[in-house]
Design a protein around this nucleic acid. Structure first.
Length: 220
DNA sequence: AACGCGGGGCT
DNA sequence: AGCCCAGCGTT
């Protein structure tokens, strides 16, 4: 593993994020486990802008798991209707509220909740509780498969290992947030490499811009 | 690990 | 109408 490149990326993205943090209500360090969980639960397959529009109102209507428990699936669905997936999500949310007095804090236990997979479990634990664990979704995969194209493994388990190795010590929360913002702003599906702090050592940029062999570029 | 799926977005 | 897709569920 190219440790110097790893370190350059770590330092680079943390620096980049200083001036490019997106601010959302659920990113307040004071947000409760429930508040962060609700946000992450809504954010899967849903643009952050959409979530931002219903989130404050949802929280005032449902400030706790108990409030969810005292409601019903139809009302919940109404409250999150603009997000889409309202039936699936309202049902799962109600089930969670019915089965838990309070949310578990261990990612493994969070993973047990209905409609909560590895991504939501890890993101919740990291952002709400500062758990030092990697998050890995399509966006993170896109970044790493470009920057570390020659080292980024195929198998999910090895990817998790690799992603864990990249975490800066004690700064998982800041780093993971930076990854998401970086994926949204720079390392987009159509990447803005000219604006990217990593373009001097990114394998993708090197292979597409240098064009040493002239045999044409590839698209991921 | 591999596959299936509901549903939202884009064409 | 049809295709693509991310993330969760199931096997």
């Amino acid at each position: 593993m190219d440790e110097s490149r790893v370190e350059r990326f770590r330092v680079g993205i943390l620096e980049w994020s200083e001036d490019n943090v997106r601010r959302y209500p659920w990113r307040d360090p004071e947000s409760s486990l429930y508040e962060v969980f609700v946000a992450e639960f809504f954010l899967t397959q849903t643009p952050a802008e959409n979530v931002a529009q219903v989130y404050p109102k949802f929280l005032s209507q449902y400030p706790s798991l108990e409030a969810v428990r005292r409601s019903d699936v139809a009302s919940l669905a109404d409250a999150i209707e603009p997000l889409g997936f309202q039936n699936i999500r309202s049902e799962a949310l109600f089930t969670i509220a019915s089965e838990y007095d309070s949310l578990p804090t261990d990612p493994t236990d969070l993973r047990e909740l209905p409609r909560v997979g590895e991504y939501v479990a890890n993101a919740t634990a990291c952002f709400a509780l500062d758990a030092q664990i990697p998050i890995l979704d399509r966006n993170v995969d896109r970044i790493y498969s470009r920057v570390f194209a020659d080292e980024w493994p195929e198998s999910p388990s090895e990817q998790t290992e690799f992603a864990a190795h990249l975490l800066p010590e004690g700064e998982a929360r800041k780093y993971n947030l930076a990854l998401l913002d970086f994926a949204a702003a720079i390392c987009t599906p159509e990447p803005r490499c000219s604006e990217c702090f990593a373009n001097e050592f990114c394998m993708y940029y090197q292979s597409t811009s240098a064009g040493v062999d002239g045999s044409g570029e590839w698209s991921e």
